[in-house]
């Protein structure tokens, strides 16, 4: 009886994963499809990977996407971390207000956030382009940083900072040598989260980008009607496989290191 329920559980998990990964498998297959239409299989080819290297519009979009993701995640990490430190010393009511505002971009619909930023940029007379996309991405990324640094901040033992002061460190030194390293795991996971969110964003970019610039998402969206270029499948396969390998390395490497201890 016990084994049969565990088999049912395994099948269930497997079905969900098939559901989640079927489209990804499809895209990977399409990236090797010699036929240009995705409707039929025209034989195996790596041509799309070759022509990808020469496709400047795709590579430009990729560059923009990565640059925006990196810059916005980086800026959000700094602003968010400073905000967390500031919030720890705030009066309860002020902190509640600031946290409430922080939650707005998380809870609000992306379309509303996108539209509202678009209206702002128009009335400020800003030229739509790289800058407006970056500002928007920083805005929706800060909450992810705050929400991952704040719990870490609460766990922080204030005595450690005080001990550093007691041992002769200036407040600034104490912060950079003691507090910041303690917060680092939270900041790092916030950065990664922000990076991912920025990379995957379409809706907010759609409203704040203007013409003449594209991220991968908006580029794909414009191609939907005329048909996606197969090079796009090739690119996303490369990105996916890279992340997959990184993930396995990160997850398997520490496991190996830990094993002699765990055997004890």
């Amino acid at each position: 009886m016990k084994t049969s329920t565990s088999i049912v559980k395994k099948i269930y998990v497997a079905l969900i994963f098939i559901f989640l990964y079927a489209p990804i498998a499809t895209l990977i297959v399409l990236s090797f499809n010699a036929s240009k239409t995705r409707a039929k299989w025209g034989g195996f080819t790596v041509n799309w990977y070759r022509s990808l290297i020469q496709d400047e519009t795709i590579l430009n979009a990729l560059g923009t996407t990565l640059l925006i993701a990196f810059l916005s995640a980086f800026a959000a990490s700094i602003i968010g971390t400073i905000a967390c430190i500031a919030m720890s010393g705030m009066k309860r009511r002020n902190r509640a207000i600031l946290m409430g505002i922080t939650n707005i971009p998380m809870l609000n619909a992306d379309i509303v956030t996108g539209i509202s930023l678009m209206l702002l940029f128009i009335s400020l007379g800003l030229k739509f382009g790289f800058g407006t996309i970056l500002l928007s991405h920083i805005t929706f990324n800060i909450p992810y940083v705050i929400l991952s640094v704040l719990p870490r901040m609460k766990q922080l033992n204030p005595s450690v900072y005080e001990a550093a002061l007691d041992l002769g460190a200036s407040p600034v030194t104490a912060f950079f040598k003691v507090t910041l390293p303690d917060l680092m795991p939270g900041i790092l996971s916030g950065f990664l989260m922000a990076f991912t969110m920025s990379l995957d964003d379409f809706i907010i970019t759609h409203f704040t980008k203007g013409s003449g610039i594209n991220t991968l998402s908006t580029k794909i969206y414009t191609e939907v009607r005329k048909g996606i270029k197969p090079e796009m499948y090739a690119l996303s396969t490369i990105i996916f496989v890279t992340v997959l390998i990184l993930l396995f390395l990160v997850n398997i490497a520490p496991e190996k290191k830990a094993s002699p201890d765990s055997g004890k």
Binding site: I24, L27, S236
Partner: peptide, 11 residues
């Protein structure tokens, strides 16, 4: 999520 969500949905 690391594979663009538009592409995944298109798939």
């Amino acid at each position: 999520m690391w594979m663009n969500f538009l592409l995944r949905t298109l798939a």
